[in-house]
Amino acid sequence: MKRKMKLTVNGEEHSLEIEPHRTLLSVLREELELKGAKEGCGQGYCGACTVLLEGQPICSCCLLAMDARGREIVTVEGLSVNGELHPLQQSFIEQGAIQCGYCTPGMLLSAKALLDENPSPSEEDIRSAISGNLCRCTGYVKIVKAIRAAAEI
């Protein structure tokens, strides 16, 4: 049976009718057409599905959309403002911190949560903040560099 729920995504409130077995990831991707968050492992190991819930990174594949009702979600699509890329996104491009791009949305959001709390993180802080995000292209060095460069802006 479908249930009515409200979800605030990237500042916009959505009224949805969904089956309760849907994960937050599937609702974001399939109902709201926000394809930034990816399904990797589907088990909370890889971090490709990372979104921010009340400002904190979570695995959207392991959370029922119903359990996120009424709460504030930010996806990678919510990072840019009026078509201007977020400083982290700009930095990822400039530093070449993107290879296949599958982990990028999750990396950006984990990095955003870090910088929101700690604007001048050490390399260790950065590594720890993205330790729940796997990059199978293994481009970690440039990702860490890009986050550090964005912090310096």
């Binding site: 190991y45 990174p57 695995c59 392991c62 729940g132």
Partner: peptide
């Protein structure tokens, strides 16, 4: 336990 993302839920 788990990762940052897991501990937040």
């Amino acid at each position: 336990v788990g990762s940052v993302q897991v501990r937040n839920i």
